[in-house]
Computed example of a mutant assay.
Amino acid sequence: MKYYAIIVAGGSGSRMQNKIAKQFLLLDGKPILMHTLEAFAACPLNPEILLVLNIHQHQYWEELCKAHSFTIPHQLIKGGDQRFHSVKNGLKAIKGKGIVAVHDAVRPLVSSALISRSFEAAEAHGNAVAGIPPTDSVRKVLFDGKTEALNRNELLLIQTPQTFAIEILRKAYQQPFRNEFTDDASVAEYSGFTIHIIEGARENIKITYPEDLEMAAILNKKGS
């Protein structure tokens, strides 16, 4: 079986209050994105890595790779206007069948064990989407501004990797973009596929705000 990883790096960094796109911010001395690619390179299934990046950032990324002597093999793909279009561009670069994991570039603490489990589960079930139960109480905001409590035991916080048999994801991404498509699971589900959930990891955080980067640094040191 052939395995692939599409790493989606489309963040602008606006919520990080930083002019540098968040995937390029330093975590323990090197860009977040490099940690993410290293995690997939460490997977025993040896996935082929495709990095989807805004075309205007390709040269900057290549300069960073030289500066940090970063040599992990990967194919650089032009990003799209939305995450949906970026993933679609990544899929176009894959020929033939196999299993593909789609992962947020700014989840650098994903473990090779979780990556391997996602590939194996997708091979068995057609797809595998990482998720964890919330620990906080959860409320829904209603149209009138009021809120109502939800049962957190019926909810999951969805992460990446989100991993699929390539033919399933290709079929799902043939449909037009919709605003409801927030991740690959929502795209596949709208196409009629049932989503298979696997257990994610608490440390597999998405770096969105400055405090997330601080937490990632602590977790990274703990895991090293």
Rank of each mutant, 00 (worst) to 15 (best):
A172E: 09
G90R: 14
E120Y: 06
L114K: 12
E148Y: 01
V138S: 04
E63G: 04
R139E: 00
Q82V: 07
E154Y: 00
D183I: 10
Y173S: 07
H56V: 11
A67R: 15
N179C: 04
K78S: 09
Y173P: 12
H68L: 01
P108R: 07
G98Y: 05
F164Y: 12
T135Y: 11
D136Y: 14
P161R: 08
R107Q: 12
K92E: 09
Q57E: 15
L114Y: 02
S86V: 06
D144G: 00
R117H: 13
P133E: 02
K97I: 02
S69N: 14
L76Q: 11
I198W: 10
T135S: 08
D183P: 11
I132P: 06
N89L: 10
G79E: 03
F143E: 02
K95R: 09
K140M: 12
A105I: 02
E189Q: 15
L51F: 10
A122V: 10
R178V: 03
I168W: 14
Y190E: 11
L91Q: 11
G80N: 11
A101H: 06
F193H: 12
V87D: 09
E189P: 01
H103G: 04
A122C: 04
L150G: 01
R178P: 00
L142K: 06
R107Y: 05
F193P: 06
G98I: 14
I99N: 00
V141T: 04
L64R: 08
L142G: 01
V110E: 03
L50I: 11
F181G: 04
A165H: 10
I158P: 00
H85R: 12
V87Q: 13
R170M: 09
V138I: 15
V110M: 11
R117Y: 09
D81L: 15
S111H: 08
I166H: 04
F143L: 07
V187G: 05
I72F: 10
K146M: 01
P161T: 03
Q162A: 13
R178A: 09
F119L: 10
F70E: 01
Q57G: 00
F143Y: 02
N127D: 09
I72C: 03
L156T: 06
A67N: 04
Q175T: 03
I55V: 12
E154P: 00
N54D: 14
H85S: 15
S86H: 15
I168L: 13
